[in-house]
Simulated scan of single mutants.
Amino acid sequence: MTQHIVTELIEHMSHSHEHMANVLEAKRHVAVRMAQMVNALPDQHPEFGGMGGLMESSHAVTNSVVSYLNSIAELQETIAETIKSIMKELSEEEEE
């Protein structure tokens, strides 16, 4: 019976991780697109609301990339915690 519960738990966590990966994929596309837009900017004399506007845009791109990387780190931590819990449950089950 316990093995069945652990199997169901693993299935639900797998679906949850799949959904989190889909969200990360979407964030990755946004970060890549923003980076492409920045790369397309002219190197000299850009007219984007002066230096202040340019700084705001650069800040937005940086925040997007940082957010994406933080999301990847959170996903890795979640997966590690899940695997740790599953391994603990399986080792306790083997001891019984």
Rank of each mutant, 00 (worst) to 15 (best):
S91R: 08
E77G: 06
Q76R: 15
A31Q: 11
M87W: 06
I72V: 15
V65Q: 02
T62Y: 07
M37Q: 08
M20T: 09
S14P: 00
L41S: 05
E8Y: 01
E92V: 04
E25C: 10
K88R: 14
S85I: 01
E18D: 12
E93Y: 11
G50W: 10
I86R: 00
A60G: 13
H4M: 11
N63W: 04
E8W: 03
V32K: 14
E94Q: 07
H29L: 11
E74D: 15
H15S: 11
L24R: 10
G49R: 04
R33N: 13
I79V: 13
Q76Y: 11
V61I: 11
S14Y: 04
Q36F: 14
T7A: 12
E25Y: 12
P42M: 04
L24D: 08
E18H: 10
L24Q: 14
I86E: 01
M34V: 08
N39K: 06
Y68S: 09
A21I: 13
M55F: 14
A80W: 09
V23M: 04
H19V: 09
S71A: 15
D43I: 06
M20P: 00
T78M: 06
L41D: 10
M37W: 05
V65G: 01
I10T: 01
E96Y: 02
A80K: 10
E89T: 08
Q3Y: 13
P42H: 06
T78F: 03
V30H: 08
V32F: 11
S16R: 08
H45T: 11
H19M: 07
V38C: 07
V38K: 11
N39L: 06
N63Q: 11
E92D: 06
P46I: 03
M1L: 13
M34H: 04
I5C: 00
H15P: 00
S91W: 06
I86Y: 01
T82Q: 04
S64A: 15
A73E: 12
S71F: 09
I10M: 02
V23A: 08
G50T: 08
S64C: 13
V32H: 13
I86A: 00
E74R: 09
